[in-house]
Structure formats: structure tokens, C-alpha cells
């Protein structure tokens, strides 16, 4: 039972995020901004000496 509940909580968090994400995309569309989400593991770029 408790395991099932945990799954539910996680799903609902994701669902809210999905809706929020859709909303954000609409806002971006309305204000003419393209947002790129750039993902990778650490270290895939090049090092720049600080």
C-alpha cells in the first residue's frame, strides 16, 4: 500500500510539472522567445582556463 502511495505522489508532481511546462511553452510562444534546453553529462564541453 505505502509503495503505491509513493508512486502516486511522484506521478502527481510530474503531472503538475508537465502542465506547468506546457504553460511556459505557451508563454514563450506569446513573447516570441525560443528556449533551448541543453543537457549533457559533466565534461562534454571544452575546458576554458579561468
Amino acid at each position: 500500500m505505502s509503495e503505491f502511495k509513493i508512486i502516486e505522489v511522484k506521478q502527481s508532481v510530474l503531472e503538475n510539472n508537465d502542465r506547468d511546462a506546457e504553460m511556459l511553452r505557451s508563454e514563450l510562444h506569446a513573447c516570441h522567445t525560443f528556449l533551448l534546453n541543453l543537457m549533457s553529462s559533466p565534461g562534454s564541453g571544452i575546458s576554458v582556463s579561468a
Binding site: D20, A21, L24, R25, L28, F34, L36, N37, M39, S40
Partner: peptide, 17 residues
């Protein structure tokens, strides 16, 4: 985790080195 959470971005890009 980043794959599971939609950020609201228009497109998703990934760098594989």
C-alpha cells in the same frame, strides 16, 4: 532526472562527447 522533467523548453538538445 533532467530527462524526466520537462523544463518548458521548445526543443531539447543533448551533447554526447
Amino acid at each position: 532526472c533532467p530527462a524526466e522533467f520537462d523544463t518548458g523548453a521548445v526543443k531539447n538538445a543533448m551533447i554526447l562527447s
